[in-house]
Write a protein that binds this DNA or RNA. Structure first.
Length: 271
DNA sequence: AGAATGACCTGCTGGC
DNA sequence: TGCCAGCAGGTCATTC
């Protein structure tokens, strides 16, 4: 369900409450995308040392290892002192001395994976190929340009791929390309400095604003504390095929790239 | 090696 | 009203 802002808002909503807690039980439900990778008993007794984020993964640091949590397309976390019995789509509970962290994920594209350390093979497989963190100091114009210059694939696909920059999902990919005036089909390597600068700025600004606003992309999004996201970042092009462009009035178009929908304004976004 | 496809799983919407 | 096709926020493995 989440793009980066939702994952970050989720992290902030429970990181401080769970930090320092001792794990009392780990209760898996139906299979998720990947197996936990260890016996639930192995987690018991470990302490939660903090919660970080890398791309769309949450990293729950434990006294002896870490849990990689991914929300997939439809996952969400709750953290509360106690929670009712697991419902139909609750597929993982981490019971701690400070509350229960619960993953609800109807489509089960999400996962909770244990790794002995961040260098462990599982962690490397999942995190090793990830690109720049768009909200970090490392996300400079030069770094983005260097990454994009190396790929001839359409820019929309490159943004979604996560190897150059992480966290830009299907909704924000359309939005930032609109703000930068770039057609989604343009080869990444063909983007000139002017539009590249606008793209860099758009990625930084849009994601930062969305985090600030509490994760506003999703219809059903709510943080782990149960606070609903507002809908303040109205999409300029995403989901608006056939409607007039808010900037020029042209009709917003939709096309399929890699089986995902891309939305763009044919006038504001040049090939 | 990079780039395009398929796969995973469930729920909701829209058209007939 | 009911059924079915198509679509949905992600990303890894497989194929070309």
């Amino acid at each position: 369900m989440p793009e980066l802002p939702e994952v970050e808002v989720t992290r902030r909503s429970f990181a401080s409450e769970i930090t320092g807690a001792q794990i009392l039980a780990a209760v898996p439900g139906k299979p998720l995308r990947w197996p936990l990778g260890c016996s639930p008993a192995r987690l018991v007794g470990q302490r939660v040392q903090g919660v970080r984020r890398r791309g769309k993964y949450l990293l729950v640091d434990l006294s002896a290892g870490l849990l990689l949590v991914h929300l997939g397309m439809s996952g969400s976390l709750r953290f509360a002192p106690s929670l009712p019995p697991a419902g139909m789509h609750d597929h993982f509970d981490l019971v701690t001395s400070q509350g229960v962290l619960r993953l609800n994920d109807p489509r089960r594209f999400g996962a909770v994976v244990f790794a002995e350390s961040q260098d462990a093979a599982v962690a490397q497989k999942l995190l090793g190929g990830l690109g720049l963190e768009p909200l970090s100091d490392a996300f400079t114009f030069e770094a983005l340009r260097a990454g994009l210059r190396a790929s001839r694939a359409p820019i929309k696909q490159v943004l979604l791929g996560g190897k150059v920059v992480v966290g830009v999902g299907n909704i924000y990919a359309s939005e930032v390309l609109f703000l930068a005036g770039i057609r989604p089909t343009v080869a990444a390597a063909a983007i000139g400095d002017v539009r590249m600068r606008r793209l860099h700025q758009a990625i930084s600004d849009v994601l930062a604003l969305a985090v600030e606003r509490g994760g506003s992309t999703l219809r059903n999004f709510s943080s782990a504390a149960g606070n609903p996201g507002h809908f303040q970042l109205a999409a300029r092009v995403y989901g608006r095929a056939g409607a007039p462009c808010l900037a020029c009035g042209s009709t917003i178009q939709c096309l399929k790239q890699g089986q995902r929908s891309s939305f763009f304004c044919p006038r504001c976004q040049r090939p």
